[in-house]
Write a protein that binds this DNA or RNA. Structure first.
Lengths: 224, 224
DNA sequence: GACTGAACGTACCATTTCGTACATTATGAA
DNA sequence: TTCATAATGTACGAAATGGTACGTTCAGTC
């Protein structure tokens, strides 16, 4: 008696154990499902179906639905952070560096709608899961550093207004970038305005960049 | 044989028909539940329990869960619009009028977290329900008008920069006001910063107002 | 008072959904 | 080879959940 079976379709079928692949597969599908439908809206059975493995494996590796959700949330944060890479702002003038930083942040949000949705969902849950995750906090701790550096340089050259805090600046930039993705549907519908259209996205991007610059740069350096 | 019964607790119990009250009761509870847990997270049985009436009545008046959700969404929009009342900006200088408008919008969002949550949830659903609602669209059509008026007046006095559009300005103000409520939990957690604290809320409010003013008002009129 | 349609209560059903029991196979160590 | 443990497949169970069948009561009209 050999250890392999013959499947219904006639192909030889030998089970391979590949824990890493199986877990990655589950995470991939789970992240998409949770991001699309939320914690309560996503269905374990549906996640299992879209996986190459079975529901059994989900519970084997991830214990229960909430743990799976938390892992998916962590994965989302990890992925966007990894994508960020290096901006290389140090060789730019402070104003241009800030401009580039804002432009990048705005674009980065646009490119990661699934991540935005996960964050929205998590906020609906009052941040109950992110609270438990030390991983996520540690990931994001240094997110303000680059902005901090640019701002300090701008202060030294005398181009930036003093008295601002990097964290609060980051908050402003995040708000504008986040809202652009998170509230597309309702805003477009209410004002009968296709926010998604490329031309309008460009407009918004330049508005946002301009707005931040005008807030940080000394007014006398800004042309009307 | 009379038409009334005696309940178990001994009190006389005569059923009163009060359709308006019953519907209002259901709507009140449903709105809170959906806002708290989302469409898929909210439970009809739980809504029914928290109501003075029964599950039967929910289906009697609202057909099914999705219809109930849509009605709750519409109610949310209606309520916030009603609260807005009159700002009476016409007698103010353009700069002060704009300042007051932004301050009010920011505050108004803070006062209506349930509404914010409903909008977040609706965006998670890709705006599938708001699309069906002509009521909501009609409600919000004139939301930009006041801003429009102020901006025009500022142009006339020469205090505002030309070339901006009221809708896009409204978008910027909304983004900052909305994000302040919608992303509290994740932002606070990630940056270990109590965004909710009164002192920080005040800071953010003045940042937002200042930021909008610096964007709209001609730079030479802004002191450092 | 008789009649009618709207308003309401109770109990129930069918399905969905999270989670698990149980058996089997793979894989590396001794 | 043997053995232990990790990995996997199949089938199923119990509770939750959206929705309904069926009957009763209220309130206005003639």
């Amino acid at each position: 008696m050999t250890t392999h079976k013959v499947a219904a379709n006639g192909k030889e079928r030998t089970r391979k154990n590949d824990p890493v692949r199986v877990q990655a597969d589950i995470m991939r599908v789970a992240t998409r499902e949770f991001s699309e439908k939320g914690l309560s809206g996503a269905r374990i059975d549906e996640i299992a179906e879209k996986t190459k493995t079975s529901k059994r494996m989900i519970y084997y590796y991830f214990k229960d639905k909430e743990t799976l959700y938390l892992k998916a949330l962590e994965r989302s944060y990890q992925q966007v952070r990894q994508q960020e890479g290096e901006l290389e702002l140090d060789h730019l003038e402070p104003i241009q560096a800030l401009s580039k930083l804002v432009a990048f942040t705005f674009e980065h949000h646009i490119k990661n709608p699934d991540f935005i949705r996960m964050v929205m969902i998590e906020n609906i849950h009052h941040g109950r899961f992110i609270e438990q995750s030390e991983l996520i906090q540690s990931l994001n701790a240094g997110a303000v550093d680059e902005l901090q550096k640019v701002y300090r340089r701008g202060l030294e050259t005398g181009q930036f207004r003093p008295g601002l805090e990097a964290l609060e600046l980051h908050w402003l930039i995040s708000a504008l970038s986040f809202f652009n993705v998170s509230n597309r549907y309702t805003f477009s519908r209410i004002f009968n305005w296709d926010q998604n259209a490329a031309s309008n996205q460009e407009k918004l991007a330049s508005h946002v960049i301009d707005m931040v610059l005008r807030y940080v740069v000394k007014p006398e350096l800004m042309a009307d």
